[in-house]
Design a protein around this nucleic acid. Structure first.
Lengths: 199, 199
DNA sequence: CTTCCACTGCACACAGGTGTACAGCGAGAC
DNA sequence: GTCTCGCTGTACACCTGTGTGCAGTGGAAG
């Protein structure tokens, strides 16, 4: 990692700050405009356009970040040789803060940018379907829906809870984990046991 | 019901047609404008404003319709003396087409009209919580979440599925029913049995 | 010290949606 | 037949957000 010039570094800092602030702001107000984002980042609107030529560029970059973080978690979890239901618990535990941070994408998924977001989410969908498929093959997950659909519904619920009133505190994470386990066909006793075994 | 004058009747017809068309159109395109709604209803934009002074009025009327239909179904189901899980199946079966028709509200719930919609949905939330509470008291529903929250999550899932790709055909209704039953803590075998017993 | 350049601060053009005003028209009401 | 009034058609004013243009400023780079 070569020492960047001070100028290049502060430019990256500005860019990152805009992204971070945009994510937080859009999380509370999905229809916030570029002006509001700029103001929240302590920058002029024009500057935002210097980094992201259009609003779509900003959203795409945010989505790419989300995909990167989620695939990283999923890849690690998938690599473990734990039972699928235990892996799922591990996955949700680590996905939770990410899902909460990027909860905007749930709202943005419909509407103008839906196409773009859906496209970028492809890899995540696949890894997720693999995990659920593994669980179904192992007999720990229900089979009333094909893996591709069951996985969508299950993590849809996780995102939905991360975007709801329960998102604060430990309650949300616990609720999301148990709920998703149940709908994956894991018996209640086993589900409760799995979440209380967590460190 | 006194025989309405022909004029009054056609005025009501126009109003109803606008509502029906708006519901269908917004279902596919939640951000459709008043102009598009008017065109789809075979009417001029100005006429829509004659019936609904503002877009909010239209949305509110739509929401009131949804609440009326849902409370009607819920009241009937709640009146039966069946076990809570069977009542839930009956409820979802009858709610399904309604949820699909009014899927717009899911998208509109966030954003400008969220406040209004959420307020009008109060009665539905209560009836729903009562049903879930009954199931928890009877030991057929899980208790990892209080009834008020569990009911929200459960019918949130139903609406989410009604708003997804699976909404078409019998698959969606079946998936929504089983998924919600599972997350309510009903064992998989029982859940499957309940849905296949349906006429 | 001079050059570079990220950021500022204001300007503008443009698109799209909302809600209103007003002069009709045509079919049902009287 | 005349009146009423729901609907038409067109025009407006207004607001909000997007994306662009350009002169200027201040601090790091050379």
């Amino acid at each position: 990692m070569p020492a960047k010039s001070s100028r290049a570094r502060s430019m990256i800092e500005t860019r990152d700050r805009i992204l971070d602030v945009a994510l937080a702001l859009l999380g509370e107000k999905p229809d916030a405009g570029m002006g509001e984002i700029a103001a929240a980042a302590g920058v002029v609107r024009r500057t935002v356009y210097d980094h992201f030529p259009s609003r779509l560029d900003l959203v795409r970059t945010l989505t790419e970040r989300a995909v990167a973080e989620m695939t990283a978690v999923l890849a690690e979890v998938n690599a473990s040789d734990a039972e699928a239901d235990a892996a799922w618990v591990e996955f949700i535990a680590r996905l939770w803060p990410v899902a909460h941070r990027y909860r905007v994408l749930l709202a943005l998924r419909r509407g103008e940018y839906g196409e773009t977001i859906h496209g970028l989410l492809g890899p995540v969908d696949e890894l997720l379907a693999d995990l659920v498929q593994r669980g179904q093959d192992g007999g720990v997950f229900a089979q009333y829906l094909p893996a591709a659909l069951l996985s969508q519904v299950a993590y849809g619920v996780v995102f939905a809870i991360a975007d709801s009133d329960l998102s604060q505190g430990t309650l949300g994470a616990r609720a999301a984990t148990i709920t998703s386990l149940l709908m994956l066909g894991v018996p209640e006793t086993r589900a409760i046991a799995l979440v209380t075994d967590q460190p």
